[in-house]
Design a protein around this nucleic acid. Structure first.
Lengths: 296, 296
DNA sequence: GCAATAGTGTCTGTTAGACATTATGCC
DNA sequence: GGCATAATGTCTAACAGACACTATTGC
């Protein structure tokens, strides 16, 4: 089972300069020398009931049978790019394709590349390089029964209790040993680390980009936007200062001129509605509070 | 030549749920179904004579014969991780391995993952997914003759005249068509975009991290550190304010208690020397000037 | 009415950046 | 001496965050 490990590349190197080695290798039939698989995994985050959730699928077969894992699958070689594969896997494994309003929700999804994970031993079957993507989605329903989603569900990230952000949040190029075994739900492969990296990215990203609006539907209120920040950052924010700060950032939100139909569930005036502006970055940014202690 | 394109994955899907498809596929011999190659390319940046340089190698064979390209090569399947491969390729293709002081310089190199590029048509030979790494290196000598470096050289990035940062600086998941054909030196494959992404990352990274010190040797002066920022950002900085700002960031630099042997080449007092502190992030950050115009 | 919330006003400590100043060393 | 530079000091406008306040709605 180890015979496939790098024989063609580590065996008999030609005496030519190595700068042309890749060309030399490329002249060969790809099947003969590159036993590496490429998968695409997605960290899909959404807000459900005020809490941050991540989409997981339960593995039905070994390895890691019975473990939950990030949705993903093999790249279709020659037929799709990385981002395409991520969108396809997300739609397939959520079972959230087809209906009109769900397509509308999917079309609002923000997708960005998170990083690649390629330690040789991260998959016991073979050397698998996984390209991870991070997705922000507005509130999506549960994966529908009868499709791939039979073994898929949204999980609140607070219940997952991942390894501490200090260690798990390291850059993607230093993923050595620890496959995540944490108290709550054990994740397959190194998906605990990928998820932790995704959460770190999300928490940092909404500081400098307007992507928090990707968690909301087209029209939203400032308190709803504040709820996104509070859910992602996991801490309460000052309502008044947040409101003024958001409106002071040019291009972050744009007023629709209308208000909500009703006030809050526990009273209060009706909030004005906004939709995302045309800013791609936030100037000035919305910085997380309580970070003045030096992170070393 | 197109027969390898995704036959096994797009052909006859079994009727089982797709959630187990990857397991089903994994039971096969990897060589039989995954004609995808994984390469690792490195955007290696260094400072030479006050200007930012990038390491490029000249391709001796098609495709893109005669073009310059980022150093890189195929991942040795089963034998190394992604970061390992990046270090190996960098050492091999620079020809900068062996000597004591060069090893010391290489050991100070900062390496981080930049992103992955996997459009099906980015390599005319086959579907190649490239994992790009970004490296910050202190001043390195020219690649030595007689090694792989015969066709390798440092190029000032100012002479490359890449496509505008607005378009090229988009996230790594939106690399559709344009392989970079720009006035100066044409780069192979989509390496112009990778390089542009790397430069954007570098310019943003030194705002919030102390990695600018990775361009310098162990002991450096504040004016030398300012020269790094000026070279990477491409604009002059106010010497006095920069000095005070750097010293006000806890853990950024640490005084050595000594000064340089001589003053500047054009006079002035001898500068105090510092070495990198233990901070991993800069609080507060050193923000680029002149960015208050909203970038949309 | 009561409580909770939306939205605005005010104040204060901190900071970024422009500018000035002094000391030092090369030519 | 002339000049460029290292390093520090001073001033001001802007900003973040704490706090207070009013208006509006659900119960």
């Amino acid at each position: 089972m180890t015979g496939w490990r790098g024989d063609a590349t580590t065996g008999d190197d030609p005496p030519e300069p190595r700068a042309t080695e890749r060309d030399w290798l490329a002249a060969y039939d790809p099947r003969a020398f590159t036993p590496v698989a490429v998968t695409v995994d997605v960290v899909a985050l959404t807000l459900r009931g005020g809490d941050l959730h991540v989409l997981l699928v339960e593995r039905a077969e070994p390895p890691y049978q019975g473990c939950w894992a990030l949705p993903g699958g093999f790249l279709r070689a020659g037929a799709e790019g990385l981002a395409e594969a991520a969108v396809r896997e997300l739609a397939e494994e959520t079972g959230l394709e087809g209906s009109i309003e769900i397509d509308a929700a999917l079309s609002r999804i923000h997708l960005e590349q998170l990083g690649s994970y390629g330690a040789p031993e991260r998959d016991p079957r073979m050397h698998v390089v996984s390209v991870a993507y991070l997705a922000f989605a507005p509130g999506l329903p549960d994966p529908q029964a009868g499709t791939d989603a039979a073994a898929a569900a949204w999980h609140p990230v607070s219940a997952l209790d991942l390894t501490s952000p200090q260690t798990a949040g390291a850059s993607a190029d230093t993923h050595g040993g620890g496959v995540g075994g944490h108290p709550g739900i054990p994740l397959a492969f190194d998906h605990a680390r990928i998820l932790a990296d995704g959460l770190d990215r999300a928490r940092a990203k909404i500081e400098y980009s307007p992507l928090a609006t990707a968690f909301l539907h087209h029209d939203f209120t400032i308190p709803e936007l504040r709820a996104v920040y509070e859910a992602v950052w996991g801490e309460r924010l000052h309502a008044g200062n947040f409101h003024r700060k958001v409106l002071s950032v040019p291009g972050f939100v744009e007023s629709t001129g209308t208000t909500t139909e009703r006030g809050g569930s526990r009273g209060g005036p009706r909030a004005r509605t906004y939709h995302p502006g045309d800013a791609r970055v936030l100037h000035p940014p919305l910085l997380r509070p309580g970070r003045e202690e030096d992170v070393r």
